[in-house]
Design a protein around this nucleic acid. Sequence first.
DNA 1: CACAATAGTGTGTATATGCACTATTGGCCG
DNA 2: CGGCCAATAGTGCATATACACACTATTGTG
Lengths: 152, 152
Amino acid sequence: MHIHTIVTKELSLDSMENCVCFNLRWVSRAFSQYFVSALNHHGLLPTQTPILAALAAKQEASMADLSDWLGMDRTTLVRNLGPLKRDGLVRATGQGRGNKGSLALTPKGHSALEKFIPDWRVAQQNIVKTLGAKRWTQILQDLERAALAVNN
Amino acid sequence: MHIHTIVTKELSLDSMENCVCFNLRWVSRAFSQYFVSALNHHGLLPTQTPILAALAAKQEASMADLSDWLGMDRTTLVRNLGPLKRDGLVRATGQGRGNKGSLALTPKGHSALEKFIPDWRVAQQNIVKTLGAKRWTQILQDLERAALAVNN
DNA sequence: CACAATAGTGTGTATATGCACTATTGGCCG
DNA sequence: CGGCCAATAGTGCATATACACACTATTGTG
């Protein structure tokens, strides 16, 4: 990658090859690829497991709640739920205010998540050990802070 | 966001809500949205400007060269070039070995990039000032190192 | 009770992403 | 010289992403 071509300690962040947005997009792709290659025998993609985990933690949630919590566009969530409903991992239930429905894991969804978690933990640890837990914690917190700062 | 809900200094990286992959994907989306909202009057998306910048720096390149340099899948590049060719910013030229062609910026592409760069610099600086240049440099270098370590 | 305002959800369009597969073509070798 | 082969490029499929818009149901107000 381009960053690699810089040998000096300080990147020139004025140069487009060091565009933060582009480089974060690249990093995101790289880790997504690792995630998929390490875990694809579960048939769960990086967009799907957070949905399952969120529903397991919250018992049930509406579309709007869930998309807010996951920080993804509501309509993106609608479509990402498609394969999960199709495969019987998530079901939508009764109606509330507006057209409001509730989403919840099916038994099959719970079981898929339980089987998934141990392997996920291994993959996560493989990632964490590249920089160490302390550094990763700091990086994730800093990135979140920056992302929130910039989008408000 | 979920990370936000953790108050203690140390994140428990064993918990799926702190999945590195998921959180980096979220951060990537967040910065992409900022990028688009700050720069969309140029009509150039976050996948397109790196292509233009790369071609400006390298004069010309084949598909394979370019996808390698940008760290994106070759077939993704093929499609991302679609709108750029359609809009007359990039042109493909002669043939080499195999089906090899060369890609280069058109005058219109050069001009669009020139007009784009000053506004990009402002957006980049807005991002950089959230954590400071030193910290961002460290983070980008760490992330690249981790991404390379994990995918090999 | 009718109706406007509101909230929740779904769809059409466009781009992004990558794997598996196909197509093309220049050059080498028999 | 002609066919094979390796290198390069493009397509089909499935999913991901988000904006703009349409649709549906609830609720507040007159």
